[in-house]
Design a protein around this nucleic acid. Structure first.
Length: 595
DNA sequence: CGACCGACTTGGACTAACGAGG
DNA sequence: CCTCGTTAGTCCAAGTCGGTCG
């Protein structure tokens, strides 16, 4: 289909643009922009030309003014610059719960000592005797001062940021100027893992040019390292999409500088992801029948595989790779579930065969769910649990690699995470169908959309901590509603009076007055409704995070089509960044799009 | 196979910027 | 115009999954 080529109309195209006029039917004139490199590379290469300016490094450490003191054992002590820098990382976090945690303190202290002079090392022997509060107050004052800056100063900073963005924030990939996602190198600091992370508090070291591998094309203008420094390496690997990388010192993993989601390369990948999920839609019935059948298999490994897949499909669980013990927080996904994470209830309340899940998933977010399952699944689970300890694997004959190999055989490109994408998107589509009502006002329609979105977020267990200001903001909103209600009854009274007046006088002036009052009532009613809808939406959203599903799981074409169908402006659903990311979908989907 | 690595997607928290209402 | 609360954007951690190597 020609429409495929009209992707990414919105971003900047440098040369080689071909304009084609294409006639369909007899009246419709399609204006299609083709970019020559949009023909997919078949050899696995991701680009032919790549040019960029390299990353922006964190500003160097600025020593504290002498008046800001660090106290050891009650006495002021001047620290060497390296020790002081690391101390400031801790001082800045003093208000955070982290700094009270034993592991955090222990890790910090250990790494801090490495930065101390031998003199400091012998003097400072106990973290509990360290007093950072003066430093902490200094930083608070600094950030306060930043907020109080004059308009001109703020503007100056903004302009400087803009300059940096213009210089380093873009690259050229295959004739397109593309926005870079993260062109700033992460500054040094203390590692903050999530959940019970064994490495929390460790020093994340400063990244220097000598740590950076640059990736660009041979024939491009290579980025220059800062004066007096060199890159670790400059390579020209067009089988990958990153522009620069370095190895981080906490887990020893590699970090990358890559393009923004609005870029062609990310957009096409995203599109592909949803196309895979749509292919799953076509064969999901077959696959479901298959795994149901496999529940009866003679082989334990196949039964385990089939039950795991059932959970992944039904509950949208993540695959659950194995993790190195002691290196990260203890979290699990489907394949790595342990006996201790589920409880079986042959009968619970008025339901049969209930499984209770309780485990920490990605980011140590708790997954808790009680769910009735088919008898066969239940019996299988009982079997899997036999003779096992709580810390044993539930699926001892299964891992993600086995599962994904199996899935690959069922459908080309199928992996565990495709089920999450598929189930998320299909749920949105179906919920939208169910909840949307043509008589609704735009805010009511948007509420329906958010509710559909919420159903997906709940399915995917996307939770958030209730915002700190939640209660207060709820109260504020309620106050506004009350006020609006008063306004409304006042307006209604006025309308009534105007009507009476008109009945008595029957003149044009009073007739007009009635109209004016009627309009006022109507306007206030609308405003009130809007507020009430907002309150409902917010309340329902207290602990649910919608962003992740919206950005990563929901085929944007469903939303675009819905907007077109119900005449809801796309801006009500996607903000500017999101519209940029989903430009391909906005451009592509018509109102009758079916996932 | 299984351990390990590399590349890429997904994730919630934090913070800066913005805009509605006083 | 200023303040305060909301929202968008940034940050960077933590997953998934494929490939390689012994």
């Amino acid at each position: 289909m020609l429409i495929c080529f009209s992707l990414f109309l919105t971003d900047q195209i440098i040369p080689h643009t071909i304009f084609v006029f294409y006639l369909t039917g007899c009246t419709l004139l399609l204006f299609v922009v083709i970019r020559w490199e949009e023909e997919r590379y078949t050899d696995g290469s991701k680009w032919r030309f790549l040019e960029h300016k390299g990353p922006v490094f964190a500003p160097p450490y600025e020593p504290l003014p002498d008046k800001v003191r660090f106290y050891y054992d009650g006495k002021p002590m001047k620290l060497s610059a390296p020790a002081e820098e690391v101390a400031t990382f801790f001082a800045k976090m003093l208000d955070h719960e982290y700094t009270t945690k034993d592991i955090f303190r222990k890790n910090f202290y250990k790494d801090w000592r490495k930065e101390m002079t031998s003199e400091e090392k012998s003097k400072i022997t106990d973290l509990n005797k360290c007093n950072f509060s003066d430093m902490n107050e200094y930083f608070k004052a600094q950030s306060e001062a930043r907020k109080q800056m004059s308009k001109e100063e703020k503007l100056k900073i903004k302009e400087e940021n803009e300059r940096l963005l213009q210089e380093y924030g873009f690259c050229i990939m295959d004739n397109h100027k593309e926005r870079i996602g993260n062109f700033r190198i992460e500054p040094p600091g203390l590692f903050r893992g999530r959940g019970d992370h064994p490495k929390m508090g460790m020093l994340k070291r400063r990244i220097r040019p000598e740590d950076i591998i640059i990736n660009c094309s041979k024939d491009s203008k290579h980025p220059k390292p800062p004066p007096g420094t060199k890159w670790k390496e400059v390579r020209h690997d067009n089988k990958v999409t990153w522009l620069a990388s370095w190895t981080e010192n906490i887990q020893g993993s590699i970090k990358y500088i890559m393009l923004n989601p609005s870029s062609r390369i990310k957009g096409e990948k995203d599109w592909q992801k949803y196309e895979t999920a749509r292919r799953l839609k076509k064969c999901v019935d077959r696959i479901r029948a298959q795994y149901r059948d496999d529940w009866k298999s003679k082989e334990m490994r196949i039964r385990q595989r089939a039950v795991a897949l059932y959970f992944i499909d039904k509950l949208a669980l993540r695959a659950g790779n194995e993790k190195e013990e002691g290196e990260t927080a203890d979290t699990v996904g489907c394949c790595s579930l342990r006996v201790e994470h589920i409880k079986l209830y042959p009968k619970l309340d008025d339901q049969e065969y209930v499984v209770e899940f309780d485990f920490l998933g990605k980011d140590s977010i708790r997954y808790y769910n009680k769910i009735p399952v088919e008898k066969r699944v239940f019996k299988n689970l009982q079997l899997f649990l036999e003779n096992k300890q709580p810390e044993d694997d539930l699926f001892d004959r299964l891992n993600t690699s086995i599962l994904n190999k199996h899935l690959q055989e069922l459908m080309d490109g199928l992996t565990a995470k495709v089920f999450r994408t598929y189930n998320a998107s299909i749920t949105l589509q179906q919920q939208l169908k169910e909840l949307s009502c043509s008589d609704d006002s735009i805010p009511a329609k948007v509420l329906s959309y958010n509710r559909a979105n919420r159903a997906v977020a709940i399915l995917c267990n996307h939770q958030r901590a209730p915002p700190k200001t939640f209660e207060k903001s709820m109260q504020n909103l309620q106050t506004k509603i009350d006020e609006k209600q008063n306004q409304l009854s006042a307006a209604r009274k006025q309308l009534k009076a105007a009507k009476a007046d008109h009945k008595a006088s029957h003149d044009d002036k009073s007739k007009k007055a009635v109209e004016v009052k009627r309009k006022a009532v109507q306007r206030i009613e609308e405003q009130l409704m809007k507020l009430q809808v907002q309150a409902t939406d917010r309340e329902e959203n207290k602990q649910i995070a919608l962003g992740t599903s919206k950005l990563n799981y929901l085929d944007p074409r469903i939303s675009v089509a819905w907007c077109k169908k119900w005449a809801v402006p796309i801006e009500k659903i996607y903000n500017k960044t999101q519209r940029e990311k989903f430009a391909w979908a906005i451009d592509m989907a018509e109102k009758d799009y079916e996932f």
